Simulated scan of single mutants.
Amino acid sequence: MSTLFRSTAVAAALFAGALSMATSAIAQDKVIAHAQGETTISGVPEKVLVQDWAAFDNLSALGVTVAGIPGSNAPGYLAPSIPADAAKIGSLQEPDFEGIAALEADLYIVGARSRNAYETAKEIAPTVDLSVDNGAIIDGLKTNLTKLGDIFGKQDKAAELIANVDAKVAEVKAAAEGKGTALVVVTNAGKLGVYGPDSRVSWLYNEVGMPSALAAVNDGDHGGDAVTFEFLLETNPDWVFVVDRDAGVGNEGGAKALLDNELFNQTTAAKEGNIVYVDPQAAYITMNGYSAVMLLLDQVLAGLNG
């Protein structure tokens, strides 16, 4: 074999290898559709930043390590999963764009509270918005698990988690059948509100199927639809599920003291002991995170079966 032939053969092999690698790299590019458009992600992201605790919750459940997290409102139930060396990249509502840029992330995730950061963030790093419609939290959770499973090549794990959610919802739905009406009461700075079928805990009505004690609720983002104790007694739900927003945002909780009230104690729920205090951070901060939803479903199930 001539030297020229050998050189040509080697060159051809090198070119073919380079072409194969380039083709493989292109094949790994993924176009991810999300709440604010589409984002192209090259390969499997290694350095991931999140401005949303529900996104952190879902990534943790999938076994994905996160390099940057919000510097505020960390839910206690997630504490064991939070890396000690994770960078703090601003609050839930106000990202630290300089810090985010310095980290040179492969993927940056925003959610409902940080979604306004998207237009700026997408110029810094590949960014996706995993905001979820409050009226369809379970569907939103499953969609996000599927999306993250595709991004990180963890489709099987995502499918396993989704199956867990479906099974738990079915279990709670069966326990709730025939148990009567429900009302989600939120306490906020000494005031009362109620959450309905478009709220942070909408799954109680929409998926679990407990009928609301109220025909209509004007759901609010924070304290719910404002009500009085007289109104609660008139509405008279069979079950009350309580979200202590003060405790949810890191302040001193006061729901139990507030509800220890002569009027409230006359409701069917109070007289029958059908009052369930759910994890306030799971219900208010990470309401569409995997562990949050599973924790809340378990608490509702324990209350119904109590």
Rank of each mutant, 00 (worst) to 15 (best):
S7R: 14
V10W: 12
A11M: 13
G17N: 04
G17S: 12
A22H: 13
T23R: 14
S24T: 10
I26L: 12
A27W: 13
Q28P: 00
Q28C: 01
A33P: 02
H34M: 05
A35N: 11
Q36G: 03
E38G: 10
E38W: 11
P45M: 02
V48S: 04
F56I: 06
L59E: 04
A61D: 05
A61L: 07
G63E: 14
P70V: 00
N73D: 14
P75Q: 04
S81H: 02
I82W: 00
P83E: 00
D85A: 13
K88I: 09
I89W: 02
S91H: 11
L92Y: 08
Q93S: 15
P95R: 01
D96W: 08
A101G: 01
L103N: 05
E104G: 09
D106E: 10
Y108S: 08
N116Y: 08
E119D: 15
T120W: 12
K122Q: 11
I124F: 01
A125M: 07
T127F: 10
S131K: 04
S131H: 04
V132Y: 00
I137W: 00
G140Q: 01
G140F: 00
L141A: 01
K147G: 06
D150E: 15
D150C: 06
F152I: 09
G153W: 12
Q155E: 15
Q155A: 15
K157F: 07
A158Y: 08
E160D: 13
E160Y: 04
N164H: 11
V165P: 06
V172S: 12
K173N: 02
A175C: 03
A176C: 12
G178C: 05
G178L: 11
G178N: 05
K179S: 02
K179H: 07
G180C: 12
L183C: 03
V184E: 10
V185P: 01
T187A: 04
N188H: 11
A189H: 13
A189E: 13
L192P: 00
P197W: 10
P197S: 15
L204W: 03
N206W: 03
N206E: 08
S212I: 07
L214E: 11
A215C: 02
D225N: 14
A226G: 06
F231K: 12
F231C: 00
L232G: 11
L232E: 01
E234I: 01
P237N: 07
D238L: 07
D244L: 01
R245P: 05
D246Q: 07
D246V: 07
G248F: 12
V249R: 15
V249T: 15
G250C: 10
N251M: 15
G254P: 09
A255M: 13
A255Y: 07
A257L: 10
D260E: 05
L263C: 09
L263M: 13
L263W: 14
L263Q: 06
N265S: 15
T268E: 13
T268Y: 12
T268I: 14
Y277S: 07
V278T: 02
T286H: 12
S291G: 05
A292E: 06
V293N: 05
L295M: 11
L295I: 08
L297Y: 07
V300D: 08
V300F: 13
L304G: 04
L304I: 06
G306M: 14
